[in-house]
Design a protein around this nucleic acid. Structure first.
Length: 492
RNA sequence: CGGGGAGUAGCUCAGCCCGGUAGAGCACCACGUUUGGGACGUGGGGGUCGGAGGUUCAAGUCCUCUCUCCCCGACCA
């Protein structure tokens, strides 16, 4: 029923205030999500880690399909020449490609790259799939793994191989492509808010941070508890760049050939790491109920005699049966030989959002003791109405976590107008500052503060995104004229 | 790629300076006593000491080479 401890799972957890990076590693271990792989930068997903990804997949996939997106699968290996077809694309990705040079014991005539992303192979194929305006829009997605040879890997946040979904769509007009890129941005935002419990800033990347080959890159930037940003998803308007590079045209109603307009959008296993950093505390991981591998941990407390213990065991088994039947992910911690306290710690570290204690005293009162992980509060709930009470507690907990994340983010976001204020703001969170949109200025900011231009925030009106109103004034860093404010922050 | 650190039991590490029977804690297995916030007793299993070469009667320990991992920076979802 209950898995045994794994490596490092029981080690001490470094407090966040002592060393945030070390704390992060500790709670990844404590939650038993990953294990070390033999290859640098790669991690093994343990059952709990993969279950979270499966839940992400289920939630996102349903949202995609609701918008008419169909799943496909393209191969892992891509001819090296494909990557080179789009000028910015090859420049952007070449440094981090893994290249296969040998196969079947022989050197390959043309090296194959392990996909870092699939725009090239997909657009090479869309050339055959798109003929007429009746073929559009073509809305595709694939669940896949990709490889990017990063210099500095970190568990979940930046791994050599990572799991993601990559959506690829083709449209008849530039406007339609832009609209769809924003639609998917909205899907991501809603997912991060309601499922993951994040409060991402949604915005557009500055030109120098765009995806290689994109005309616009939109991003979601939730704040971690230490004030740093994490890019948690992107949606790109690729314009006609890939259609031109791969010669994809369709015949319009006017009988003429037109280029197809593209989007691509992706979300990765990185978000799992972000979720840990947003919600976890010094006692371990805390998972929002919507994604928790174990939503309810039932800990029976044995009685002084066999009869009382048997009654407790039966009540615990009944609770598990009822909650499981109601669709919850439940663990009954019936491991023998462990005292209740040890089990409490066990489930706290692993992030179970709700714990139910059932002991002789509870049974005498016809109740269970419910303990919410994020605030440690204990409250009795009647065994007769267990499922309903659990549902209410989990719903409240999900909302509490999201609200807490939003509060932290807002309290650490400052609107600033000059260099000194910007430096102070990025030392502890987000700065909302006018920026001149000059690359050299962004570089100067980064060299001085280690912060980067995260995005120009977008505002959500009537389900669509619009740029924030212009706010002319001097660039907070260099004083040159600036039209709008950007989020400036250190990032993972 | 620069700068640090580390490879010895499943995990965390001691042992290395000063060569001589491979250890501790935790975890694991068995039995018993415990059980409302990390229990205890007794017994037990588990090791090519990262790899290769060298010195030596003898190498975890000394020498040479090598591989790998982790952490901190620049590249990135």
């Amino acid at each position: 029923m209950v898995e045994q401890h794994g490596q490092g799972a029981d080690g001490p957890i470094t407090p966040r205030a002592t060393a945030y990076a070390q704390w992060y590693q500790d709670i990844v271990a404590a939650a038993e999500l990953l294990d070390q792989a033999p290859v640098r930068g790669c991690w093994i997903f343990r059952p709990n880690g993969y279950l979270i990804w499966e839940i992400f997949q289920r939630e996102l996939d349903a949202r995609f399909k609701r918008r008419g997106v169909q799943n496909v699968y393209f191969p892992l290996l891509i001819p090296q020449s494909y990557i080179a077809r789009e000028a910015e694309h090859v420049e952007g990705f070449s440094p981090e490609l893994a290249v296969v040079t040998h196969g079947g014991g022989e050197e390959l005539e043309e090296p194959l790259v392990v996909r870092p992303t699939s725009e090239t192979v997909i657009w090479a194929t869309l050339r055959r799939w798109i003929r007429s305006h009746r073929d559009l829009p073509m809305l595709l997605n694939q669940w896949a793994n990709v490889v990017r040879w990063e210099k500095r890997p970190r568990a979940f946040l930046r791994t050599t191989e990572f799991l993601w979904q990559e959506g690829h769509t083709a449209h008849a007009t530039a406007q339609e492509a832009r609209d769809f890129a924003l639609t998917m941005l909205g899907v991501y935002e809603e997912f991060l808010q309601t499922v993951v419990g994040m409060a991402p800033i949604v915005g557009e990347k500055p030109a120098h941070e765009r995806f290689p080959g994109a005309v616009a890159t939109f991003t979601l930037e939730p704040m971690m508890q230490d004030g740093r940003a994490l890019q948690a998803g992107t949606s790109h308007d690729l314009g006609a760049n890939f259609a031109k590079a791969f010669d994809v045209t369709y015949q319009g109603e006017d009988g003429e050939a037109h280029p197809a307009y593209a989007t691509s959008w992706g979300m990765t296993t990185r978000v799992i790491g972000g979720m840990l950093m947003v919600h976890g505390d010094d006692r371990g991981a805390i998972f929002p109920p919507a994604v928790a591998p174990v939503q309810v941990a039932i800990v029976p407390v044995s009685g002084r005699d066999a009869g009382a213990t048997q009654a407790v065991d039966e009540a615990a088994a009944t609770a598990r049966r009822d909650l499981t039947a109601a669709g919850y992910r439940v663990a009954l911690d019936d491991r023998p030989g462990l005292r209740p306290g040890a089990k409490f710690f066990h489930w706290e570290r692993r992030g179970a959002p709700l714990r139910l204690e059932i002991g002789p005293r509870d049974l005498a009162a016809g109740q269970a003791t419910a303990v919410t992980r994020h605030d440690g509060e204990k409250r009795p709930i009647p065994l007769s109405g267990l499922t309903g009470a659990v549902q209410a507690l989990l719903a409240g907990l999900q909302a509490d976590l999201a609200a807490r994340a939003r509060t932290i983010q807002e309290s650490r976001t400052q609107t600033v107008d000059d260099r000194a204020a910007l430096e102070l703001a990025v030392a502890q969170g987000y700065a909302l500052a006018r920026w001149c949109e000059q690359y050299d200025c962004a570089t100067a900011i980064q060299e001085a503060t280690r912060a980067t231009i995260r995005c120009f925030p977008l505002q959500d009106h009537d389900g669509s995104y619009h740029p924030a109103p212009t706010d002319p004034g001097p660039c907070a860093w260099c004083g040159a004229p600036a039209q709008r404010r950007a989020i400036v922050a250190r990032a993972y």
